[in-house]
Amino acid sequence: MPNDPMKTIDTLYLIDDDDTYQFIVQRTLNSLNLVNSIKLFSNGKAAIDFLEATLHDIEQIPDVILLDLTMPIMDGWQFLEQYLRFRPRIGKKVVIFVVSSSIDPRDMQRAKSISEVTDYIIKPLTKSKLISMLHESLES
């Protein structure tokens, strides 16, 4: 449980091409009242373009990113690569969770080798898992 019940996450990016998953997570987040603003992106490129355009505005920069790996146009790995380039210009702690259907240990190791990635979550992303991830983000 959060130390401060009023504490919430300002902005969360949900990057995943699966619209059913987007619907589920968005709905769950809304019911939890822990996140003020959720931004949905269907691939890494849409997210990175938005991030770049809003780098000057600290309010818009996400506190938490839920990132899928397998996506068209720009996948999760490419997103992370681009993100690391912007990292020095982001004046804020951003917690990134990779959320994937892949149980391939190579994917897990690769994700964990990137210091910016807090954890690797295998779908399904249940409500209780989501709550503990958000609390972890709030405490960090």
């Binding site: 059913t20 998953y21 892949s102 295998i122 779908k123 399904p124």
Partner: peptide
């Protein structure tokens, strides 16, 4: 196995979450 599991897990995860909702 990894790829099949990925491709089956994606829709299956959604079904699990939707039914519990």
């Amino acid at each position: 196995c990894f790829i099949v599991s990925h491709n089956l897990r994606a829709p299956l995860s959604n079904l699990l979450l939707l039914t519990s909702m």
